[in-house]
Write a protein that binds this DNA or RNA. Structure first.
Lengths: 283, 283
DNA sequence: CGCACCTATACCCTGCCGGTATGGAGTCCC
DNA sequence: GGGACTCCATACCGGCAGGGTATAGGTGCG
């Protein structure tokens, strides 16, 4: 099976529409139809049920969509890793906006002095993209927060655990509380951090929206302490007693190189130092 | 990256020779050279160092060989699983000659009566091929023996543990012993069960060779009891006290379907019954 | 120095891949 | 119910990728 055919099939299977898929692929619709027909012929299996009104997946089509996506991810990873191996060694670290709890800068400073240091590129990606960037080889290490749904294939190191705070407008009924518990928040509207994530509120596409929407009373948000403190003076942040979040360093479990190991170790050291400092300050 | 290019590269990287690789791929050498050049150009990385006398891998080439093989295996698995999903559900069970300890027949009989039964195809493969057949989706479940070098990605269930016996010609110095230990066999010549396996003796390509070679005094072999007993009356089998082997059912850890689970469970039941019977007979 | 071996280049040809135009089936809506 | 719309399939055509043969060029060996 040619990988291009598989890319085509995945596009059609996702769009459930030949014309839109062709559009996305940057080719015309007829060649796409033929490519899928050829693929079906070669596999000896019907992948799609088409009527003139809708396209649906057969059992075999579902299998190929799932397995094929994995295979294509692997192929992309092989390509990226190969490209990287040909260049100067460097690390790509990926985080999301405000997702590093302020640790990244000291980590980079300390790592630069490490004997196994290499050049580091920092990538700030959209919400929920980090794991796929790790898996396809674009990034070497990510800063993630627990809880995470699917960490398969990734190795992790816990960096630090933070309180979580609910962020509210000044006028909110809970704004005067010294602390709250999760049950107190049962009636609140929380944003959905990505298209797929559960929740009742609006989908967040830009982090700047969050403070805005909270101020307007549209939503509330529960955020790690390091993030909540930076939203601005017009919002009240109240600790949620029974919630904690942990910042993780994560990387592909198969990767074994000195620079990566050194980076993770450095990150853990910086985080440990920070935790100790916080404990002293808090006390 | 097109999968065909990757197949070509892997062939060259393994053969370390364009002409032989082209031969194996069934194409001429010049198109192969061009394909590799194109791949290198597209990746922007040199993969192979060629002199007119030898081809060697660059760092990037090694990465692509390793990662690419994985990706191609996944691609093949996606293809096979898709093909299978389009047909009647069935299980492919793979074992090697005499590798089932006589369990397969009763397992199949019992499985046929199971509520979740499906058609079963039995594949008897060459030595050392089982794991790759599982990984590329050709087979659903394999009967393997411990010790095994690399079971990553596979789930296993222990079926039964057997004694191992050393098989000797009648005239052998140890032929009269009631039992031996591994240290007693230090001077013996053992066959190599595949091209890669360690050992001093000849490479076995056909199981029929083994009895033959033992009879001629060329080698000795340590085999599971169930196999050793069937080599014929002209050979003496002496128990090796300090060696045991376990028969495993193994399958891809990602697979989750009722028929597969039912098969493994049935296999375990049959094996348990056999073990009990043996214990009674032996006592 | 010639021979054997191996890869790269030159050149040709076939067939695949992609494009445009159009057909035909089903759905929506007035 | 008919026209318009949507959507996939078919027909046909052109360009180029990919494969073949012949051969050049470099290197180790006797």
């Amino acid at each position: 099976m040619e990988s291009r055919e598989l890319v085509y099939f995945v596009a059609v299977a996702q769009e459930r529409n030949f014309s839109r898929a062709a559009d996305r692929l940057g080719i015309a619709q007829p060649p796409l139809s033929r490519a899928i027909q050829r693929l079906e012929r070669r596999l000896g299996v019907r992948l799609l049920e088409r009527t003139s009104r809708q396209v649906s997946l057969t059992r075999a089509g579902e299998v190929l969509l799932n397995e094929g996506r994995k295979a294509l991810t692997n192929l992309a990873a092989a390509e990226r890793l190969t490209r990287r191996a040909g260049r100067e060694p460097r690390l790509v670290v990926v985080t999301k906006p405000a997702g590093d709890a302020g640790l990244l800068e000291p980590i980079l400073a300390r790592f630069a002095a490490h004997p196994d240091t290499v050049e580091v590129e920092v990538l700030i990606c959209g919400i929920g993209e980090q794991k796929s960037l790790l898996r396809d080889g674009t990034a070497d290490v990510a800063l993630l927060r627990t809880p995470q749904t699917d960490l398969s294939g990734l190795a992790t190191e816990e960096l630090l655990t933070e309180r979580e705070l609910v962020v509210l407008p000044r006028t909110h009924r809970l704004a005067g509380r010294a602390s709250v518990r999760t049950v107190d928040l049962a009636d609140e509207v929380f944003p959905r951090w990505s298209d797929e994530s559960p929740g009742s509120g609006p989908v967040i596409t830009d982090t700047g929206q969050v403070a805005e929407l909270i101020m307007l009373g549209q939503i509330t948000a529960v955020l790690p302490e390091s993030v909540a403190c930076r939203l601005g003076p017009d919002l009240i942040a109240v600790p949620v007693d029974d919630r904690r979040t942990t910042l993780l360093a994560a990387w592909s479990e198969e990767r074994r190189d000195r620079a990566l190991a050194a980076f993770v170790r450095t990150a853990a050291e910086v985080a440990a130092a920070r935790s100790t400092a916080d404990a002293l300050t808090g006390a």
